[in-house]
């Protein structure tokens, strides 16, 4: 199992210190859509305050993998997982699902603003969380500033979110996810519908927010993975072929398949 080879865990480390080093630990995760197995024995450890990228051709299971981490797969009838997913050492499957999703934010491929005003898009998550009414507008401002969107929207907070450009909408979705202070942020091809300027704004943003949370990003774009991530995993046909720090992965891939993919021979 190549996956085990790249597992950098030392066996003599105690479980507690392992949990401190890794925000997220996935062990032997299998995923099924009905009879079809979409993920085969995925094991991965994601370090705290680092960006971990997942690359691979369409349909390789990288988005499916991401969606199990906040249990979004449970919304798909017939989807089923086995294996372990530990967030701070605690199984995500034992946690209350709403509470889990407040600690694990998600940003989707296509921006999904709520049919509400810009302000309400951010405030909604805060209200759900029961945040005190008086502090909501401060928190909205803070979140928009963290997502580098405040200057562009501060004069039109009551306008509908769908009046924003695609890139702005995506940053709004990131602000919305950040507002509830997630420990882990999942991004599923967040830039695939954006132009280069929108993309570079989001990439800069990721490097800023990794100070406060752990980021997992799925991307089609290998340059993007190389630019923003500390670690990269390569998926192919539902298997994690290689997982390593980004620099080694792109300079000296250990698997022939990885090398073929990143040099553009397929995918």
């Amino acid at each position: 199992m190549e996956v085990r080879d790249t597992d950098i865990l030392k066996s003599d480390q105690s479980a507690a210190s392992v949990d401190q080093a890794y925000k997220l630990r996935v062990k032997d995760l299998n995923f099924y859509y009905g009879a079809f197995q979409a993920l085969h024995g995925i094991s991965i450890n994601a370090e705290k305050n680092r960006v971990t990228a997942f690359i691979g051709p369409s349909g390789c299971g990288k988005s499916t993998f991401l969606r199990t981490l906040n249990r979004m797969h449970e919304e798909t009838p017939g989807a089923r997982v086995d294996g372990e997913v530990l967030l701070d050492g605690e199984s995500i499957f034992d946690r209350d699902i709403s509470e889990l999703r407040r600690s694990v934010g998600m940003v989707f491929q296509r921006s999904t603003p709520f049919p509400k005003s810009i302000f309400e898009n951010i405030a909604y998550g805060l209200r759900i969380r029961g945040v005190d009414r008086s502090s909501i507008s401060d928190l909205v401002e803070q979140s928009l500033k963290r997502a580098n969107l405040w200057e562009e929207v501060k004069h039109k907070l009551n306008k509908s979110a769908s009046s924003l450009s695609g890139g702005q909408q995506q940053r709004l979705c990131i602000a919305r996810a950040l507002a509830v202070n997630p420990e882990l942020l999942l991004l599923d091809e967040p830039c695939s519908a954006l132009d280069p300027i929108g993309t570079s704004k989001i990439e800069d943003l990721l490097l800023e927010i990794k100070e406060t949370c752990t980021i997992l990003i799925v991307t089609h774009n290998m340059q993007q993975a190389a630019r923003v991530s500390d670690y990269t995993g390569f998926f192919l046909s539902g298997k994690l072929i290689e997982f390593n720090d980004t620099k080694s992965m792109f300079e000296t891939p250990s698997s022939k398949l990885t090398e073929d993919y990143i040099t553009g021979r397929f995918g």
Binding site: R101, K116, G125, I128, R176
Partner: peptide, 24 residues
């Protein structure tokens, strides 16, 4: 996508239905 976005910020299903889906 609207439902998933609502669920993803930790809104329970009934709130997603009444706050987001029904208004849409």
């Amino acid at each position: 996508s609207i439902r998933e976005a609502g669920l993803a910020i930790g809104a329970p299903k009934w709130r997603v239905t009444f706050d987001l889906v029904l208004p849409a």
